[in-house]
Amino acid sequence: MNAYDIVMDLVSKVSDISELPQIGAYNIRADGAGAARQNTENIQIITKTDKPGIDIMVKPGTKGEKVFIPAVITRGGVDDLVYNDFYIGEGADVEIIAGCGVHNCDCEDSHHNGIHRFFVEKNARVRYVEKHFGEGTGTGKRIINPVTEVFAEEGSYIEMDTVQIEGVDSTKRVNKAVLKEGASMVVTEKIMTHDDQVAETHFDVDMVGQGSSCHLVSRSVAKDNSRQLFQSYMKGEAQCYGHSECDAIIMDSATVSAIPEVVAADVEAQLVHEATIGKIAGEQLIKLMTLGLTEAQAEEQIINGFLR
C-alpha cells in the first residue's frame, strides 16, 4: 500500500469517507502536517500562525454543513501535537467529523495529541463525531491523547459522539465544558480495550447557567488484561440538570474503575450519577443461544449492541 492509500484507508476508518468530498469543508492532517484542505463559503479553515493547528470558522446561521477534519499517522516515531479551535457562529447548525487513525508497523511509538476547543455561540448547534482507530504490526505503541474544551453560550447545543473500538494502545481523554444559560451538552462515549491497552476518560463539566443541562453516557468493554478509568466531575452552579452514566462490561482479567463526582452549588441543581460495571449477564448469553447462536457469537452480538 502506498502512502496515499494508507492515508485514505485510515481516513475512511475514522471518518466514514473513502475519498475526498466534492462539496463541504475538510482538512486532512497526515504525520503532523496538513495534507489536503477545502473551504466553503460558510466554513473557512485557517492555519494557525503561533502553534500547530487550525481555526475552523463557521459563519453565523450556517445550516446543515459538514466539516471533515481527520488526522492520521502512517508510521512510527511521530509525535504530533495539534491545536484545533472551532468557532461556531450564532444560530449555526453543523456537523464536525473528526477522528484519528494511527498505522504503526515500526518499533517506535507514535503519538497524536489533539487539543480541540469549541466556541459555540448563542443558539448554535453542533454535532461532533470522533473515531479513534489504531492498526499495524510493529512493536511501537499507538497513543492518542485528545483534549476537548467546550464553551457553550446561551441556548446552544453540542452533541459529542466519540468511539474508540480497537488498536489504540494507550489513550487519555480529557473533556472540559462550561455551559451557560439554557445550553445543553450530550456526550456519548464508546470504548473497547483489549490486550494490555489502557484507556482513561476524564470529564469536567461546569453548569453555570440557569436551565443548562448535561447528559454523559460512557459505555465500555474491557477485555483481556486491559485497564480503563472513567472519572467525571459535574458541577451545578444554577438551576440545571446533569446526568452521567458509566456502564462497563468487564471480561477476562481486565480492570475498570469508575470515579464519579457530582457537586451541587445551587439548591435547584439536580445531578444524577449511575455507574454499572459487570460481566455479560448469563441470561443474555442463554437467550441468544436458544436462538441458535454459539456462546462466542452471542457474546459478540451483546458487545456489538452495547457499543453500537
Binding site: 441470561e283 443474555q284 437467550k287 443461544m289 436458544t290 441458535g292 447462536l293 457499543l307 453500537r308
Partner: peptide, 30 residues
Amino acid sequence: ITERANRGISFAFQQPVRFKGITVRDLLSL
C-alpha cells in the same frame, strides 16, 4: 443449548431478558 436450538427447539422464557443496544428487529432477525 445451541445444538438443541439448531435441531429445532425454541424456548420462550418466563422472564424475558433485556439487552442494551440490541433492537427488537435484531432479536427477530437472529
